[in-house]
Design a binder for these strands. Structure first.
Lengths: 305, 305
DNA sequence: ATAATGTCTTTTATCGTGAAAAAACATTTT
DNA sequence: AAAATGTTTTTTCACGATAAAAGACATTAT
């Protein structure tokens, strides 16, 4: 097997959802832009849709014949990229097994266990290494540094440094900047979520990321913007394993965000600084409470504790 | 060809240099630690040294028979890792060709041009991407972001943030910390270099890196420590292309380092901050003067200007 | 003339393979 | 017994090959 066609399958599924809305599909290049794939993939999608009787396709005319049924969709798991599959497996091992700091990581073993080639695992590890959780020994194996309290503290230290600076830059942005409209929109979403927090608290994580990324972008510094990938990754998995008081935590965070947003809109640097610090402090505490032990104990131990 | 034996060749060369000093070599594990390679490689080295009549090898006894001659050494270029070879080729293209920002990078073409497999090029690009000079388009090519003024400014902004914090942490380290001895040793080296700056100015770059890495390490933050790799990489190539007033620049930098060191030893945070700022400011200016044009012009243009 | 479709070429993503190097195990020496 | 040497196994590194996907070129339709 050389390469899975997950790009095609994922785009196909997304295209199916488009079918519900219109009675005929746009041109091939337009569809390509819409789905974020090349025309080659678009044509494969159209070919299959014609085959399964979803559309009638003749050159420019692509008429929708019937609404898509559940079984028209490709199974979810077939639409994931290899990188996602490897990351998920790796993180599961990291969070679930006895993943002690200092433990060595075996590329071959990982590859066999996940059922992929070693090349993909190697590439994943190289990409993953920027998160600071693993480290390579020169012409030898990788070493796990562990999801420790030290890691969380180092991560949040940088985060605070970067976000305080970004928030200040944000507040100094001119009135005409489009970010203010983005911020207004995010504020509305926050108010909406705050009102329905009881049922929708699990939607916060996604909103949180969009909000902080908007702020970080104001720094106009690629290193700051890129660093948010590290934070996002950690918080993504953090949200998955630490469900304790999720509702309460998110409720508090939404409120903090609203204060933070108000501070930004006031352009008062003092207020911005205070609101930002307060929110980041509680974010740090949330993260830290899930890694209670000092030193070598891992996340699973932390959960058991 | 599956894998070059550069590890062996490099270790062999380094081992040859050891021969000059002693009349017999230590045990295999000891040699392994000394050279930073496994026993397997040590044994290959010993086997060849026996073959070429450099040593008599019988179990524990490894007697040196003759001094190594120049032709005993493997050629320098055969001791480089593939990663080094690819990096050098890539940087040469980046700095010498019409490497405009926005230009796309072709893995296959790069691999063919350098004469290596695509996998190695891919892995290199992934590793290299953390320097912020290239970016990947989802399931498509890499894009060059260009060695622009904006890049230099973003880089130095982070550097200043990180180093000011590290320097403050350094100054706050207790008397017993071994870093003070390291600092004393570095100070001596600086004084020595300052005295002979006329002939040894080109040795500064290496000393510079060791000095700044020592300071960054005081942050005890892996993200700060790791970020110095980005700075080191940029300055490494910067030193190679920008030879204008090299002697003068380095002379000034050595003097600034000495002030900086004195400030650290005084433990006076105000002084440390001032000395650090002053040095980083001139480092930034040095870097910026080699990228004079705003926006899209590249390094070669900059050199011509 | 512009923008679509149809066709062909190139590049990317992934695997299996084999040599280099590391690591593990077994045996001998001090 | 501890530490070395000798031997075998495992892992890492790098390649060529191949299908998926992107991209380029040619042709046709509005």
């Amino acid at each position: 097997m050389s390469k899975s066609n997950n790009v095609y399958k994922d785009a196909y599924n997304r295209c199916l959802r488009l079918l519900d809305e219109t009675k005929s599909l746009p041109s091939e290049p337009e569809l390509g832009t819409l789905l974020g794939v090349s025309r080659t993939t678009v044509r494969s999608i159209l070919a299959r849709m014609e085959e399964t009787g979803l559309i009638a396709w003749n050159k420019r005319s692509k008429t929708v014949l019937r609404a898509p049924r559940p079984d028209d969709f490709f199974p979810e798991e077939e639409t994931d990229t290899l990188a996602e599959i490897i990351e998920r497996s790796f993180m599961r091992r990291l969070l679930a097994g006895g993943a002690e700091a200092g433990m060595q990581i075996n590329e071959l073993e990982l590859a066999r266990e996940i059922g992929v080639g070693t090349t993909s695992v190697r590439e994943f590890l190289i990409r993953f290494s920027r998160f600071g959780l693993i480290e390579k020994r020169r012409n030898s194996h990788w070493v796990l540094k562990g999801f420790t309290r030290a890691f969380a503290l180092e991560l949040t230290e940088i985060r605070e440094m970067f976000e305080l600076r970004s928030a200040a830059a944000f507040a100094a942005l001119p009135e005409e900047s489009p970010v203010w409209a983005d911020l207004d929109r995010l504020e509305d979403e926050h108010r909406l979520l705050a009102r329905e927090i009881a049922s929708r608290f699990n939607e916060f994580s996604e909103l949180d990321e969009r909000f902080h990324r908007l702020i970080h972008r104001a720094s106009h510094n690629r290193f700051i913007v890129d660093f948010y990938d590290v934070i996002a990754m950690i918080f993504h998995y953090h949200y998955q394993w630490n469900k304790a008081q999720e509702r309460e935590r998110n409720e508090v965070a939404v409120a903090e965000h609203l204060v933070y947003i108000a501070a930004l809109k006031s352009r008062d640097l003092g207020k911005v600084d205070a609101a930002c610090r307060k929110h980041l402090k509680s974010a740090r505490n949330t993260l830290l409470t899930s890694i209670p032990e000092a030193g070598s104990r891992n996340v699973l131990d932390a959960r058991r504790a």
